[in-house]
Design a binder for these strands. Structure first.
Length: 419
RNA sequence: GCCCGGGUGGUGUAGUGGCCUAUCAUGCGGCCCUGUCGAGGCCGCGACUUGGGUUCAAAUCCCGACCUGGGCGCCA
């Protein structure tokens, strides 16, 4: 919001971040989207009319100031503005529900209740400025790789994968659900010949969990790629993660500084462990799934991003390509793990109609519900692979946030529906 | 769904039966102050989630409700 009118005159509009009144001199710190600028009202240099006006301003009021830039070593960042005019655009009521200057840090719950104010804080705003840049990096990456960006329906008739609970909604006279994943649709698009698609969109899970890593509405980055296998999309995922980290490191330096993060860029290739190796490390029986404790242990043993590959077929969804190895029924599947949390999971998919039907039936699901999906496999479905990556968790792990809700502007969790 | 914590001014806290007309910080109001940048000094304002119970006496102990933090399960 700093528009230089000529070399000296500036106009600044923003919130009154702090007021320091020393009697004969009064400092207003005005906060714009990206900066905090000091406006200095001294009796010597500013009219008494303006001095009287500035006395009526409360913290977090919105003002517009026109004045002259003055270099002064005593000012923060070495300059300040000596005002010629002052418009009070909106007076803020008092007391404030929380303190945007970080002198007293409110709890997350209070902050989320007053999210509009919370996001005025430079640290919090920086999270979302970075999140925007991450999304930009993702689009950048996929467009360069000749992917097509798509939008699939969020109102659907059936569960995508079983497993997670769905939110039922009423769709005129029919029952419908909020989609838990774009999985089925992005696969159908492979049959339509788009070859490489990606989508950045919301997914909904009705699980009643209440943890630091779960949301009931999350943002998923999903891709699907024809003529690719699990290895191909693993490489692509690695490449994307590193692209994002690099992009943020070079384009979001100021925001990283504000948050106080020194971003370490992961190195390729990421470590890989097979499911069999992983259960060995954490002492599980073959066929067991990893609990939180095991996930933590694996994370601390490996210490950086890694893949867990070749999961037992039965612990992955029906569309996962089977893999027979050492007389065990595994799958061409993988999870991308951060030491703290799972970030992504993917696989090569089944593209054979009969095999897919068999896998759906084996899981006790009703084939009739899947006809719109299965039809796409009847008339020439290329081999393909893909994955889904949780954007919110990616931001959480990248910026070392304690709670995934910190990475979402208006999070939806077990209890929170407002704001 | 299970287990363990917690609800004290606007915000963040101290306080484990009487010393509480409740601590401290921040904030807000007033006064002083021309270089603040966690401004400072003085004065003032503002709170025990809720319903029962125990007790001479409850912020404090017990039970319920509501809200809430963490862990587990499940999940991405």
């Amino acid at each position: 919001m700093m528009n230089s009118k000529n070399t000296d005159m500036v106009e600044i509009a923003g919130w009154v971040h702090e007021i320091r009144d020393l009697g004969g001199i009064r400092f207003l710190l005005v906060r714009t989207r990206d900066d905090i600028v000091q406006i200095t009202f001294s009796k010597r240099k500013v009219s008494s009319e303006l001095i009287d006006k500035v006395k009526t301003i409360s913290r977090e009021s919105v003002i517009r100031v026109k004045g002259i830039i003055s270099k002064d070593e005593r000012a923060p960042n070495g300059f300040e503005v000596i005002p010629n005019s002052l418009d009070i655009l909106a007076i803020a009521k008092s007391p404030l529900p929380l303190d945007p200057t970080d002198k007293v840090v409110a709890e997350l719950e209070t902050r989320l209740d007053q999210r509009f104010l919370d996001m005025r804080r430079p640290k919090i705003k920086s999270i979302f400025m970075i999140r925007s840049l991450v999304v930009r990096a993702i689009r950048d990456f996929f467009y360069k790789k000749d992917f097509v960006e798509v939008n699939t329906p969020k109102i659907v008739s059936i569960a995508t994968e079983g497993g997670a609970a769905l939110f039922p909604i009423s769709y005129f006279d029919k029952e419908a659900f909020l989609n838990q994943s774009p999985q089925l649709y992005k696969q159908i698009l492979m049959s339509s010949g788009f070859e490489r698609v990606f989508e950045i969109g919301p997914i909904f899970r009705a699980e009643e969990y209440s943890t630091r890593k779960h949301l009931n509405e999350a943002t998923s980055i999903d891709i699907e790629m024809s003529y690719a296998d699990d290895n191909d999309v693993i490489r692509l995922l690695e490449e994307l993660i590193i692209y994002i980290y690099r992009y943020i490191n070079t384009n979001a330096d100021r925001y990283l500084k504000t948050i106080g993060i020194d971003l370490k860029i992961p190195t390729r290739p990421f470590k890989q462990v097979s499911y069999d190796e992983a259960i060995e490390i954490v002492n599980l029986e073959w066929g067991d799934d990893f609990g939180s404790l095991e996930e933590k242990k694996l994370g601390s043993v490996i210490g950086e991003h890694y893949f867990i590959r070749e999961w037992p077929l039965k612990s992955k969804p029906y569309y996962t390509m089977p893999l027979e190895k050492d007389r065990k029924i595994l799958s061409k599947s993988f999870d991308l793990m951060h030491p703290r949390v799972e970030l992504a999971s993917g696989s090569q998919r089944i593209n054979d109609y009969e095999l897919l039907k068999k896998q759906i039936e084996m899981r006790g699901l009703n084939l009739d519900n899947f006809s719109f999906y299965l039809d796409a496999f009847k008339y020439g479905m290329p081999p393909h692979a893909g994955w889904g990556l949780g954007l919110d968790r990616l931001i959480m792990t990248m910026l070392d946030l304690d709670n995934v809700r910190e990475a979402v502007m208006f999070p939806r969790d077990r209890r929170r529906l407002v704001p």
